[in-house]
Design a protein around this nucleic acid. Structure first.
Lengths: 328, 328
DNA sequence: CAGAAAATGATTGACGTATCTCTTTTTCCG
DNA sequence: CGGAAAAAGAGATACGTCAATCATTTTCTG
């Protein structure tokens, strides 16, 4: 019934508690055959260390660093808020979170770090710092190819496909021309979303136009879209892949009824208001609060030496009519 | 820096540890003014009991019961699986889950229970049993009006609105007739979904036909829809609100290209296959794995005497193209 | 085989809380 | 004021693990 303790393991292995402890915590100075006997007993009994008792004894706390890109990006500030709120809620679990500026490198002493694979100045430096100090890291929101422990966020290709499907639905059986706008083609997540949308729009009567790069700036967004709409009066829809949507929304405000169908990412106060005012049609959201919670779950698992649970967030699709209540 | 302990509280209140403990755990035999002083100190220091140390000391384990309706219902078996898997994953957190048959009443001794507000035989008896024993309960999947501690699941009105919006999108600017099918109008969640859809379809060129009640049976589903399609050849879409979708899918298989647009609930092996084969168009899923995780979170919070975190799950919308990978 | 080195065992005191027992002090009431 | 009851304090032990010390035994080496 009761879970076995390390004492049980020691007894089963025929060694003292000290030796079992030395094996479990890899303190060294144990003969190979003793190591084997202890590991065998751990296997046989299905022993698993009581992490709470261990944390109590060690007065351990989980110190996590999250490197978020700065700048005018509503989503990241929402994510940062959510992370701090989650950390507060988990204070009893000894979890603390520090938001860091990627520009400053990774100075502190952390148990695990999270970083966003987006265009931020010091990202390479941060990764080097972390690697040098042996601090494990996960990626958040936007993945980075190569070695890291886990990715918490949406599958951007799937998100792009979802957008593509919404665009097709919106056109019914009719034809149309879709203008994609993104931050930069060098951003993996933006590229993946675009590719996902292209997959779905390929076999349809919709044409996916070449994407405009606006580097997440509202002004550039507005200018680029104004130019695109002027150049091609057959544009029936806009798919905004990155940030800077205030520019898009402002532009839609001027167009009135005849505006194209608009799908964009991230539910922010701005995009929410735009949905409610019928300035845009659909928002694909990656739910920062949930993402924050799953990120802390993953970081804690890693800090405990466990395998982080898979945490692919399914993006939520919001229309005017299914917006979450203010409480949520 | 360090969180205050009960010793700190006792010192701050100017009483002994014993007295502070008697107050904290309401053991009685403490003078009113001492109670006040201790509570004051708890406030001032922001003391919060270290639940892990407490659990360790008390050798506490969390025994949860979940009352799931039985029967031919892919979703509930998936939910049951997810609950057991989650419990397994949290064995180190001393969480154990027992799936119970609502027909048997609530016999065991539980720290918290979860029940589904659906049409199951013994639900009233279970609720009475739990109330009598003072066992707190949450609701899962389908809410029950009245006193309970928390609801974990989707907002069914919002889900219905989402379906309504998908149906509108699918019709573009054209008109159409939508046939809703549900288990029973006496089920609150089914009614809510229907009402949600009606809200959106009201101000449109779509007509929401009177719903067919099929009591979640595939055969009845098939018969009812066959009859409806025969009686009204203007039906352009079907919204299946409850279970028994195998009957719907089988029928769509016979209709070929000219089938109506179909939206249904719950991603199961059947509905997934149907999506992939283009037999249906969209699935609104409440993500049983996530629901299981949040349910256990809520039950643990309640068992610990805390406020359960809000856990309104945003339903996922799946099309053929954004189905989650097999791993997820 | 002696002596050093390595391995093992035994024991202890935390960590923060629960729970129990046994004093000692305070308060109450007639 | 005396005695009983209530309240408070003191202390011990336990939960499962960590981390350290010290003693003892085994193994290795020359």
């Amino acid at each position: 019934m009761r879970n076995p303790t390390l004492h049980d393991v020691a007894r089963a292995a025929g060694v003292s508690y000290s030796t079992a402890d030395r094996v479990l915590n890899e303190r060294g100075g144990v003969a190979a055959k003793s190591i084997q006997r202890v590991q065998r007993a751990i296997q046989d009994l299905g022993y698993r260390r009581d992490i709470h008792a261990a944390n109590l004894s060690r007065r351990r706390s989980y110190r996590f660093a999250v490197f978020l890109p700065g700048g005018d990006h509503g989503f990241f500030s929402a994510l940062g808020q959510a992370l701090l709120a989650q950390a507060e809620a988990r204070a009893l679990d000894r979890v603390s979170v520090t938001l860091c500026d990627p520009g400053q490198g990774a100075a502190g002493d952390w148990d695990c770090a999270a970083l966003v694979g987006a265009e931020s100045e010091g990202l390479a430096q941060v990764m080097a710092d972390l690697a040098e100090r042996g601090i494990p890291a996960i990626t958040l929101v936007s993945d980075i190819a190569g070695a890291r422990r886990a990715y918490v966020g949406i599958d951007n290709t799937v998100a792009g496909r979802t957008a593509g499907r919404l665009l097709r639905l919106a056109h019914g059986r009719g034809a149309g021309r879709v203008q994609p706008v993104l931050g930069s083609l060098s951003l993996r997540d933006h590229r993946e979303r675009l590719d996902g949308a292209a997959e779905i729009l390929g076999p349809s009567r919709l044409t996916l136009l070449p994407p405009a790069e606006v580097h997440d700036h509202p002004d550039r967004m507005r200018d680029a879209l104004t130019a695109a709409l002027r150049a091609d009066d057959g544009i029936t829809a806009i798919y905004s892949i990155g940030a800077g949507n205030r520019g898009l929304i402002a532009l839609m405000e001027t167009l009135g009824e005849s505006r194209p169908f608009v799908v964009l990412h991230e539910l922010t106060p701005h995009s929410r208001a735009a949905l409610e005012l019928d300035l845009i049609d659909a928002v694909i959201d990656q739910k920062p609060a949930e993402e924050a919670a799953r990120a802390l779950d993953a970081m804690r698992a890693i800090a405990d030496g466990e395998e982080p649970p898979p945490a692919v967030i399914t993006p939520a699709i919001f229309f005017k009519e299914n917006l979450p209540g203010v409480s949520a």
